[in-house]
Amino acid sequence: MAKDMTLLWGSGSPPCWRVMIMLEEKQLQNCDKKLLSFDKMEHKSQEVLDINPRGQLPSFKHGNIIVNESYGACFYLESQFKNQGTKLVPDDTAQQALMYQRMFEGLTFYDKVGAVIYYEYYVPEGERLESAMKRNKETLATELKLWEGYLEKLGSGSYMAGPSFTLADVVIFPTVGNLFRFGLSAQRYPKLGAYYAQVKDRPSVQASWPPHWLENPKGDEETLKDV
């Protein structure tokens, strides 16, 4: 099955990492995965555009089926391979509802993290404002306190939607990974720090760890040190 799959991806991209983790959890490691460079603008290559006219990564194809949005790809893989690998949608109704809630809140979380981490990447130098960065950091701090509260309510050792690893963790952990890559304080946010420490050693996460993070274990730790 996995031999009919193609994933074009970029290192360190949370949307790409979501699909990478998903493939590991569903035992689809034999998927044809091709690493492309954002710096070299390979995501705008014809190879990508043939699958994804937006010129974005990830770009995912299974046979003749194309699902490029990372959440969509994760839902698709869980649906098609629900009896293979890790069961990622809980049977318990309350936990399932919480999983869906956290998954889609995760999109807002990712946007607020990205507004700080990728500000210099996306905003031209002449248009950057210290006031905008300050405001983005304040907004992110408020968001982080919200997630701290969610995890505190669930209790020690919990995942994002309860006692088991679910689709919520597949899609949210890459955002959390980027937070700590860019210097978030585990002392200031102990629940998120504990969650990161718990999930980062999961085999699917280790197997899909961004290659350039392995080459350079320390990221730009100044970015989020004061958030």
Score class of each variant (00 low, 15 high):
2 A>H: 07
4 D>A: 13
5 M>S: 11
5 M>P: 02
6 T>R: 11
13 S>A: 01
17 W>A: 11
17 W>L: 05
18 R>I: 03
18 R>D: 04
19 V>H: 02
21 I>W: 00
22 M>C: 11
24 E>A: 13
25 E>F: 08
26 K>Q: 08
27 Q>E: 15
32 D>P: 05
35 L>Q: 14
35 L>N: 04
37 S>G: 04
40 K>Y: 08
43 H>M: 11
46 Q>P: 00
46 Q>D: 12
47 E>W: 01
49 L>S: 10
51 I>Q: 06
52 N>I: 09
53 P>F: 11
56 Q>M: 13
61 K>L: 01
61 K>Y: 05
62 H>Y: 15
64 N>Y: 10
66 I>M: 06
70 S>T: 07
70 S>F: 04
70 S>D: 07
73 A>T: 11
73 A>V: 09
73 A>S: 14
85 G>C: 07
86 T>L: 07
87 K>T: 11
88 L>P: 10
90 P>N: 06
90 P>K: 03
92 D>Q: 13
94 A>D: 01
97 A>N: 06
100 Y>C: 04
104 F>S: 02
107 L>G: 03
114 G>C: 01
115 A>Y: 05
122 Y>T: 11
123 V>I: 15
125 E>S: 14
127 E>F: 12
127 E>P: 05
128 R>D: 03
129 L>H: 11
130 E>V: 09
131 S>G: 03
132 A>C: 09
134 K>H: 09
134 K>Y: 04
135 R>W: 10
135 R>A: 14
137 K>G: 03
139 T>K: 12
142 T>R: 14
142 T>P: 00
146 L>H: 15
149 G>V: 05
150 Y>D: 05
153 K>N: 08
155 G>I: 04
157 G>H: 11
158 S>Y: 06
162 G>S: 02
164 S>Y: 09
167 L>T: 12
167 L>E: 00
169 D>E: 10
172 I>N: 03
174 P>W: 00
176 V>W: 10
179 L>N: 00
181 R>W: 08
188 R>C: 02
190 P>I: 08
192 L>N: 03
192 L>H: 03
193 G>E: 13
193 G>M: 10
195 Y>V: 07
201 D>V: 08
202 R>Q: 08
205 V>I: 15
206 Q>M: 14
209 W>R: 14
210 P>K: 14
210 P>M: 08
210 P>V: 08
212 H>P: 06
215 E>M: 09
215 E>C: 00
216 N>A: 10
218 K>A: 05
218 K>R: 07
224 L>I: 03
225 K>M: 11
